[in-house]
């Protein structure tokens, strides 16, 4: 049986290979190929990798079984890269479809549909309908909190606004310090990960601006940038060390200042 093939385009080689592993497990006869990472193998996407993978799938020696290709891409510039590849080579367009779909769910849905011998349009629809598989609402009802809905991306929160529902630290053994953010982008992904890792290593409750300091997402949601004053607190054994360590990270600008 001839099958539609899949191309997974991700900024991360490991993310693409992980999703491909899942898809292949469920659809062993479907060609699932990755084009991930930038030209140097770092995080990013590469037009050449995408073009080479598409060409190999469609016209390569092993291409006999592939009737078309559905592409899944993970983040903004991965989508742009795929669109560019299709624009650059007019011959690819009719046989390739870029899905607007969640990366993992879309890959699995497309692969299982392709495995059944479905045509390009049907496989594309399966990928694009995959968001519904997550369900119209979360299975676990969110706990009501008093915090207001965020109006924009996490980074637009006003300074000092607390997010999350971490219990405030109270008691005589609470250590508190206030430090100023030095690096322009503040607690974006990499620094937030550094803080969270350091906070977790002490095994005691640590807060930054009232949120759990071990949560990368909550730290990022603070939206702090250069000039923001962050209150760091910790309670219990080695609370002094924990606060000093985090304060040092922030004041050091995470090597970016």
């Amino acid at each position: 049986m001839r099958h539609v093939g899949l191309l997974l385009v991700s900024h991360s080689v490991r993310l693409a290979e992980g999703a491909a592993e899942l898809a292949r497990e469920m659809a062993p006869e479907v060609a699932v190929v990755c084009a991930a990472g930038d030209v140097d193998g770092g995080l990013g996407t590469s037009l050449d990798r995408v073009t080479d993978a598409l060409t190999a799938l469609l016209d390569g020696e092993d291409a006999a079984g592939v009737t078309g290709v559905v592409v899944l891409a993970d983040l903004g510039s991965a989508v742009l890269t795929v669109e560019s590849a299709l624009e650059l080579d007019d011959e690819l367009g009719p046989r390739v479809r870029l899905a607007s779909a969640p990366f993992v769910e879309g890959a699995v849905a497309a692969a299982t549909t392709a495995q059944q011998g479905a045509d390009l349009r049907t496989v594309l629809d399966a990928a694009q309908g995959a968001a519904d598989s997550i369900g119209p609402r979360p299975v676990v009802e969110p706990v009501e909190t008093e915090r207001e809905e965020s109006e924009g991306p996490a980074g637009t929160r006003v300074e000092g606004e607390t997010v999350g529902a971490a219990e405030p630290l109270r008691g005589d053994d609470v250590v508190v310090a206030r430090v100023e953010v030095r690096n322009p982008l503040g607690l974006h992904a990499r620094p937030a990960a550094l803080v969270a890792k350091a906070a977790a290593s002490f095994g005691i409750p640590v807060r930054v601006q009232g949120v759990d300091a071990t949560s990368v997402l909550q730290l990022m949601a603070l939206g702090s940038t250069a000039g923001t004053i962050l209150e760091i607190s910790a309670r219990g054994e080695r609370a002094n060390d924990a606060v000093a360590t985090l304060a040092g990270l922030v004041e050091g600008g995470f090597g970016e200042a």
């Binding site: 930038d38 030209v39 990013g44 996407t45 037009l47 903004g76 510039s77 742009l80 890269t81 669109e83 560019s84």
Partner: peptide, 8 residues
């Protein structure tokens, strides 16, 4: 050759 969004 240009990574990110600027290349595309």
């Amino acid at each position: 050759k240009v990574g990110g969004a600027a290349g595309p």
